[in-house]
Structure formats: structure tokens, C-alpha cells
Computed example of a mutant assay.
Amino acid sequence: MMRPLCCIVGPTAAGKSALALQLAHARGLSIVSADSRQLYRHFNVGTAKPTREEQALVPHYGIDCVDPVERYSAHRWAESASSWCRAATDQGAPPLIVGGTGLYLRALVTPLAPVPTLDADRRRALAPWLDTLDRAELLRWCARLDPARAHLGRTQLLRAVETALLAGTRISDALDGPGQGLASATGPVRYLVVDPGPGLAVRIEARVQAMVAAGFVEEIEQLRTHVPSDAPAWNASGYGVMREAVEGRLTLGAAIERVIIETRQYAKRQRTWFRHQLPSQQVTHVNPLAPTAVAEALAWWDAAHQQDGVHA
């Protein structure tokens, strides 16, 4: 019988990684990161990437996979994740999917068609015009060209508009179309949604402050010396705003406040996605602040495998 696919998910700063690390260490598992930001090399502090010590404690996949100038789609991640899951299983450390990128999770269990590849020169030519659009204008363009994507964040809106203009197709059509996913290659899917509830706002602020203390500004100063300003990796949450501070276009205090606000908005969108997109019968909730959180996570993993006739 196929082993169930277990995923620890939740909004940013909720405490997914810490809980997953404890579970993985206790049960001899590998962690497959479903985080669209941690894929990029050199972008470490602002993405809350697992430390070297954490990666040495538990095998990690999906970390430091691509250069900052590369574009990485959900379809490509799902294909890679399939290989990582097989490799982890073959090495005797079953995979635990951990992350908050909803589209990656969807691509993992639902077949997706490949997103159109865009010509790099035409993208560069279009970029200056796209940069002039404020959010309201960008929303109007997306509502016309690809309305199914018009509720998303700025990065997704930009991608939807440029795909429609340059490829002549809607990115939403590709994402909803048939393709090759991982669903047929896995057993039942189980989700552990990690969310501290009202305490998340405080955790987000604390995380941003901790990132600054850990060298977020210094990291950006160093990245600017070798990463082009239009590299996709700069779209990672917080980096664009903090780069404005490094370049003198914003005070550090104002930048920190903006990053906190944008991160809270992103977490709100994540919560909405998890609430509406995950099958309720496959979901277990846990508050990471509860003293029983680790025990609940262990019980969730064990129950999933016992229930589906697979020994952990």
C-alpha cells in the first residue's frame, strides 16, 4: 500500500518549521520544503531558511535549488518534489512536506499543466511599464486579462498580466488544465495546519525584528553586488521593501513597518487559501503555542500511517 503524503502547512511565521523539525527528528523523517522563497540560493535571512544546524539534524530537500535569476513554477516544483520524495523514501527517511506556498501544495496533489514559458527579452522590455502600475491599475489589467487571478498579491498579478500579454494565454487556464502531477503516485493526503490564531500578528512582528537583528539589511547589501535588480528572487516577501531602505529611498524604521504589514497581509491570504482549498476531512489543526503541540503532531503522523495501513 502506498504511504500517505503528510503535509505540515500554515501561514508564515506560524511555527511550521520548528514543529516539523521536532516531528521529523523524532520519527526519522526528511523535510521537503514547499516554500517558493527558500528555493533560491543566497536569500537566507529574509526567507527564514533553515540553519545549517537544522539541515544537519534532519535531511532537507527544496532548499538552495536554483540561482536568484531563475524563474521557478509550481509545475516545476511538483516534478522536483516527486523526485525528492522518492529519494527520501529510498534512503529510509520518509518525506514530510512543509511549507506555506499554497499553489505548490496544490500542484503536488493535483495535476497541473505547464505554465507558458515567456521570452526573456520580451519580459525585460515589458518590465519597465509593469513597474509603473500601482496596485489598483494592476488589478484592473488583471481583471480584464485573467480575472481568476485578480484577488492575489502583486507578484502573482504581475505574472498573470505578463503571461496574458506575452503568451496570449491565461496563466489560470494552465493551472486549471490537465497535466502531470504527483497525486497518482501518492497515497492519501493528510494536512496538519499550524496556526497560533490571534497570536500570529505578534509573531510576525517579532520575526521581522529578529531578521533585521540577524543581518537582513547586511544580506541585501551583499546581494545587490551580484544579483540583478530584476531577478525573480527579489520578489520574496520583504526583500523589495528592505532594498528600498538599503538604497536610501525609505528609512529603516518605515521599511520594517511596511514589511510587517505586508507579511500580515500575506498571512491573511494564506489562511484564506488553506481554509477554502484543503479538504476538511483531511485536515487536523494544531496551535503551536499549546504545550501539547509536539505530542499532537506525533499523534497526527502516527494516526495517518496506522489508519492507512502503513507502519511509520
Rank of each mutant, 00 (worst) to 15 (best):
G100C: 01
Y72T: 09
P95V: 00
T155A: 15
R159G: 12
A113M: 09
T89K: 10
L133A: 01
Q55Y: 03
R144W: 14
G168H: 05
W84R: 03
E79C: 11
A164I: 07
A127H: 12
I171E: 08
H60P: 03
H60V: 06
R149W: 11
V69I: 12
I97N: 08
L139T: 15
L126S: 06
L152I: 06
R122Q: 10
L158Q: 12
V58G: 03
A74P: 13
A125W: 05
S83W: 04
E70K: 06
A78N: 00
A120R: 12
L165W: 04
D64P: 01
E70I: 15
I171M: 09
I63F: 00
T163W: 02
V115T: 15
A78D: 00
L165M: 00
T169L: 08
D131Y: 08
A93M: 14
Q156A: 15
L108H: 10
R76N: 10
P68G: 03
R122A: 04
E137W: 14
L130A: 02
A167V: 05
R170F: 00
P116K: 08
R86G: 05
Y61P: 00
P68C: 03
L138F: 02
A74C: 11
W129D: 15
L112K: 12
P114R: 11
Q91N: 14
L130P: 08
L118Y: 05
D134T: 05
D146T: 03
S80P: 11
S82A: 08
Y72L: 04
L126N: 01
L96T: 04
S82E: 13
P128A: 14
R76V: 12
D90F: 10
W77P: 01
I63M: 00
W129M: 15
G92P: 13
R154T: 13
A87V: 06
L103S: 12
L126M: 00
W84S: 03
P59I: 01
C85I: 07
R140V: 06
A74H: 04
W84P: 02
V109L: 12
L105N: 07
S80Y: 15
T169G: 10
H60R: 04
A113V: 09
A87R: 07
Y61F: 09
V69M: 06
P94V: 06
L145I: 10
A56E: 09
L96R: 05
P116E: 05
P114F: 10
W141I: 04
R159A: 14
E53P: 14
Y104G: 03
E70F: 13
V109W: 07
L157Y: 03
W84C: 00
I63E: 09
L138Q: 01
L145Q: 05
W129G: 13
C65E: 15
H60I: 09
E162S: 05
H75W: 14
G153I: 10
R76G: 13
L158H: 08
D121Q: 14
V66I: 09
T117K: 11
A160N: 06
T163L: 06
A136L: 11
V58P: 00
L133V: 01
D90G: 12
E79A: 15
I171F: 03
T101E: 02
R140Q: 15
A164C: 05
S83M: 09
L130Y: 01
E70Q: 09
P116A: 10
D134K: 10
W129A: 15
W77T: 04
A164M: 08
C142K: 04
E137G: 13
R76F: 05
A127V: 07
E53H: 10
